[in-house]
Computed example of a mutant assay.
Amino acid sequence: MTGPERLRAALRETPRGEWAEAALTAASERPETIGRSFVQAGRRAGRAPLPGVPGWTADEATRALLLAALPADRVETEIGDLYRYGDADEKRAVLKALPMLAVGAAGLPLLHDAIRTNDARLLAAALGPYARHLHQAAWRQAVLKCVFMAVPLTVVDGLDERADRELAVMLAAFADERAAAGRSMPADAADLLDRLTREES
């Protein structure tokens, strides 16, 4: 899991790192500023990939760190509001920030919402480290949705540890449906099914 310290260090190396640093300082001193900075992050911090931190952009890192800078008693309310009223990029940043926040299982409604959408980027973000809070049945359905939407299974945190016989049954049924329609399974899903089947045998 990528931690706040690594994100902040990487942000300092970006062309607009000074703005991000100032926004984070303001958020820790005046939490009421987070909403404005959160919305502005795409334009002010930029959307370029974060150097040395695969899978993160500068605006996502800034938004995640803004949430991490909040007082504990404000975090649950803020993540709910910022996710609910945010655009897709803002929602994704909230989802990616969840593992860094002391919210327990309070972020689960956001994961369930992201999994229900047809936005592949939100689905992928929902299956990061925080997905450990998902009940196994919901997690299996989310993995199957990744297969259906051709989202690479590499986005699923803890896949090898959580994949079980029930997931294998679901994947096998999906493979049969695809075969009947003259279509093949994504290669990573076929590999997972093969591995689970061999382990069961």
Results as ranks from 00 to 15, higher is better:
L70H: 08
P71V: 02
P71F: 09
A72C: 11
A72W: 11
D73Q: 14
D73S: 11
R74K: 10
R74H: 14
V75T: 13
E76H: 12
E76M: 11
T77M: 15
E78M: 08
E78P: 02
E78K: 05
G80S: 13
G80T: 13
D81L: 13
D81H: 15
D81N: 14
L82Q: 04
L82A: 05
Y83D: 02
Y83K: 03
Y83F: 01
Y83Q: 03
Y83R: 04
R84Q: 10
Y85M: 12
G86F: 03
D87W: 13
D87K: 11
D87Y: 12
A88S: 13
D89S: 05
D89H: 05
D89I: 00
D89Y: 02
E90H: 10
K91W: 01
R92Q: 06
R92D: 02
A93Q: 01
V94M: 00
V94Q: 00
V94W: 00
V94N: 00
V94S: 01
L95N: 04
K96N: 00
K96F: 00
A97W: 00
L98K: 01
P99R: 02
P99I: 04
P99D: 06
L101V: 04
V103N: 11
V103I: 12
V103A: 12
G104K: 14
A105C: 07
A106M: 07
A106S: 11
A106L: 13
G107F: 08
G107C: 08
L108Y: 04
L108P: 01
L110R: 04
L110V: 09
L111A: 03
D113H: 15
I115R: 10
R116V: 09
R116L: 15
T117A: 14
T117G: 12
T117R: 09
N118H: 14
D119M: 07
A120T: 14
R121Y: 12
R121V: 05
R121F: 12
R121I: 02
R121N: 09
L122F: 14
L123K: 07
L123D: 09
L123E: 09
L123T: 06
A124G: 11
A124H: 08
A125W: 01
